[in-house]
């Protein structure tokens, strides 16, 4: 019964996505073509990468609100290096972005691990600090398309075997995360630490260190996404991806990752991100003002969390039945 519920969670999302596609196709038949769906996937790739990083953090009962700011900082550093030090190979820039992102994530992780500061406070603080640092680095100036090298901009767009590199990258991240979460001790540790921190300690897991690892992972993904974002939109400035951290959390919530920790799967997070991506891409097509997107994703988040809560409540044991009725 429990397994069925958990499994049906992703099934439910698939059904919702299918229903969404049917509605959109009914209004605009061209949406369902393979080429367009591939486009939508490509467009959602960055969100998927970020959502998988955020998922790991949420699994350990933490949250990372600094992801978008981390992304913007790493993207800006990559773009500035590309502009001021033209000789650097692009792959090295990508590596620098990932390492820098991991380091920024490690700062979050250390503050949570070593000082026991609540994650939401830490990442609220580092969010504004990272954004401010971009301003200090760039002086508020933009790095525009003509200041970036051609290879820097074209790498994620390059077509390999019929799909852009960006799509392949996100697929690779999904596969890697599937393996990590299901087949490695570290992946199990993320679940254990979030499911029951006390029990995790008794089984020999270091709760703080596991959280630290989760933050490093989400930071690294944010760094990678930073390069991808800047090169894809061919511009870097202080406010890129402002507010995107909430889209990422929304994708996780829609994907059935419990904010209370310990519950959630890689396919869930991916489907949650895809759901948001499809809405974003479908609205202009079916003639709904893009301004409606925010309200729609808000409604979807609320519905998703209500559904999540119902699924989770059944698992709980009712010890004091009468008292619960009084409440």
């Amino acid at each position: 019964m429990l397994n069925m519920l958990l499994r049906s969670r992703e099934l439910l999302l698939l059904v919702a996505i299918a229903a969404l596609l049917v509605v959109v196709t009914w209004r605009f038949p061209g949406f369902i073509t393979l080429a367009n769906l591939a486009n939508v996937y490509n467009d959602t790739s960055i969100l998927i990468i970020l959502a998988l990083g955020q998922m790991v953090v949420i699994l350990t009962r933490c949250i990372d609100l600094s992801m978008a700011a981390n992304l913007a900082l790493c993207g800006m550093v990559a773009a500035m290096l590309n502009f001021y030090v033209p000789g650097l190979p692009v792959l090295l820039l990508v590596l620098i972005a990932v390492v820098l992102g991991t380091a920024l994530g490690a700062i979050n992780g250390l503050l949570v691990w070593k000082l026991d500061i609540p994650p939401i406070v830490v990442t609220l603080g580092t969010m504004t600090i990272f954004r401010g640092t971009i301003f200090l680095l760039s002086g508020g100036a933009w790095i525009n398309a003509h200041q970036m090298s051609d290879l820097f901009k074209s790498l994620p767009r390059g077509i390999v075997a019929g799909m852009p590199v960006l799509s392949w990258l996100s697929l690779a991240v999904i596969v890697a995360m599937l393996v990590v979460m299901r087949r490695t001790p570290t992946g199990r540790a993320f679940y254990a630490v979030g499911g029951n921190p006390h029990a995790a300690v008794y089984t020999g897991l270091d709760v703080g260190y596991t959280r630290f690892k989760a933050y490093c992972l989400s930071g690294g993904f944010a760094g990678l996404a930073g390069y991808l974002w800047v090169s894809r939109y061919a511009v870097a400035y202080v406010d890129i991806a402002a507010g995107f951290e909430l889209d990422v959390v929304a994708a996780c919530v829609i994907g059935g990752i419990s904010i209370a920790g310990g519950v959630g799967t890689v396919p869930g997070a991916v489907l949650g991100a895809l759901f948001l991506g499809i809405i974003k891409n479908a609205l202009p097509v079916v003639n709904i003002s893009p301004f409606a997107q925010m309200a729609i994703s808000g409604t979807v988040i609320i519905i998703a969390v209500a559904v999540n809560a119902r699924a989770e409540r059944r698992k709980g044991r009712v010890i004091l039945k009468r008292a619960e009725h009084v409440a």
Partner: peptide, 30 residues
Amino acid sequence: LVTGLGLPSIVVTIGTMSLFRGASFIILGD
């Protein structure tokens, strides 16, 4: 939403945050 349905307030208010500001965007646009 928080007390009636027993949902975690941090997620609910992230949702209503999008909803309320989104409603404002629908009415005003640019």
